[in-house]
Amino acid sequence: MNRGSAGYSLLEVLVAFAIMSMVLAALLPAQSRLLQRSRSADEGLLAQELALSRLAEVGVAIPDPAGVREVPYRRWILREVTVREGLGDGEPDMIRLRVDVLGPDGRLLASEEAVRLAE
């Protein structure tokens, strides 16, 4: 039995590990960016859902007088903007509601707006 042809030499194994580590080193930063984009997209979708949900809640209840109200929600800030617009000529007033979701750094994550008749 010839021992020289029984397996891989140490040099061949080291070269294989070196090639594998170079490939992994090239893939890890790209994977990290992909994970960050995914996390950002998830955060944006959750913020959009929160804005729509809050807009539906405010739309059912009688809104506060015109103004800006900020409400903390977990690590975000919900900014609710209410504007009352008079149409005149005996027409009913309009109420414009906007809900902005701001991230911890103050960046706008989502914004939703609705208009309805005042009661």
Rank of each mutant, 00 (worst) to 15 (best):
D42E: 13
R3G: 06
L55A: 03
R37Q: 13
S32I: 09
E113M: 09
L78K: 05
V101R: 07
F17W: 03
E70T: 05
Q31L: 12
T82W: 11
V15M: 01
M94A: 15
V71M: 04
E80R: 11
P104C: 02
D105R: 14
S38D: 11
R84M: 06
G67K: 07
E85P: 02
S9K: 04
R98M: 05
L50V: 11
L46S: 06
M22A: 03
I19T: 09
L109Q: 06
Q36D: 07
R79L: 14
D105T: 10
G4S: 12
P92Y: 06
L35Q: 12
I95F: 04
E112R: 15
Q36Y: 05
G106P: 10
R79N: 02
R3C: 04
V15N: 00
R96F: 08
R107E: 14
A114G: 09
G106W: 13
L50G: 01
R39K: 06
L117T: 14
V60I: 07
L50C: 03
E85T: 12
E70Y: 01
P92H: 09
A16F: 00
L109D: 06
R116C: 01
V81T: 13
D89M: 01
D93R: 10
R54G: 04
E91T: 04
A110K: 08
V68K: 08
R84E: 12
A30M: 01
S9L: 05
R75D: 15
L117P: 11
L50K: 05
I62Q: 15
V13D: 00
V68A: 13
G103Q: 06
T82M: 10
F17G: 10
V99N: 06
L24D: 09
R3K: 13
R69Y: 11
P29M: 05
V83T: 14
P72T: 08
R69C: 04
Y73K: 08
R116W: 02
V58M: 07
V23Y: 00
R3H: 09
V15G: 02
V81Q: 12
Q36A: 14
D42P: 00
L46K: 06
L11G: 01
D93E: 14
R98T: 14
G103K: 08
L78V: 00
R96Q: 13
